[in-house]
Each structure stands twice: as C-alpha cells, then as structure tokens.
C-alpha cells in the first residue's frame, strides 16, 4: 500500500453548486449511515437495539434540519462524511460511539436556585 493511496471511504470535499445538490448529498450521506448500521454494530460491538442507533443517526441529522446557508451545509456534510469514514473504518472506538448517547442517560439539569446549588452548579 503506497502512502499516496486514499484511505477507504474517503470522499473529495466539494462545494455544492446549489441547495438541491447539497440536499441530494445529505440524503446520500444519510443513506450510507443507515445502511452501515449493522456493520457499525458488528465492528464496535454495540450493545443496544438497532433501532436506537438508527434513531440517533436520525436525531443528529434533524438537529441541522433548518440550516439554509450553503457554506454551512457544506461544512456539515464534510463533518458527516468524516464521521462516517472514521466510524466505518473503526478509527473510532466504542467510547466514541457511546459519546453520542451521553445526553440520553444524564440526569435532568437542575432548575431552581437550591437545586443548582446542591448540584454544585451556579
């Protein structure tokens, strides 16, 4: 393997010519992620139902549903591709996958003054 050889699943970063083109690449990225779920679960030995992983992927895409700026979408696409490559190539490890689920397991944030004080937050 030569050093110049592109890594597996790497994609050349590109500027999207239009919003509809960007939308199409987002859909492709989403499809790649969802299609990769069984393999992700295998390589990372994820001890969760498959539906949870699928929902989490969906959630991460939904977070940026309202982004309209093409430049921002391009960056998000790049990050998504990067995330996909790192996950599928197992450059990420189990802990990096589980980090997506931290918020789901965390106790609710303290609301009132006294609760915040007792939790050691101000």
């Amino acid at each position: 393997m030569s050093a110049a050889m592109a890594a597996h699943l790497s994609v050349v970063t590109a500027q999207s010519p239009s919003l509809s083109a960007a939308r199409q690449s987002v859909i492709h990225l989403y499809r790649d992620f969802q299609r990769g779920v069984p393999e992700i679960m295998r390589t990372h030995q994820v001890d969760m139902p498959m539906s949870m992983i699928r929902t989490k992927i969906r959630e991460e895409f939904e977070r940026h549903r309202d982004v309209k700026d093409l430049a921002v979408i391009d960056i998000l696409l790049f990050k998504g591709r990067q995330e996909y490559q790192e996950t599928m190539n197992a450059w990420k490890q189990e802990t990096h996958i589980m980090r997506y689920f931290i918020k789901d397991d965390a106790p609710p944030k303290p609301q009132g003054f006294l609760e915040k004080f007792l939790a050691g937050r101000d």
Partner: peptide, 9 residues
C-alpha cells in the same frame, strides 16, 4: 426525504 430513505431501505 429522510423517511423516504428509510422506506426504500
């Protein structure tokens, strides 16, 4: 569009 992807899959 994302639901459609899931249906097709």
């Amino acid at each position: 569009s994302l639901d459609t992807v899931e249906v097709v899959m």
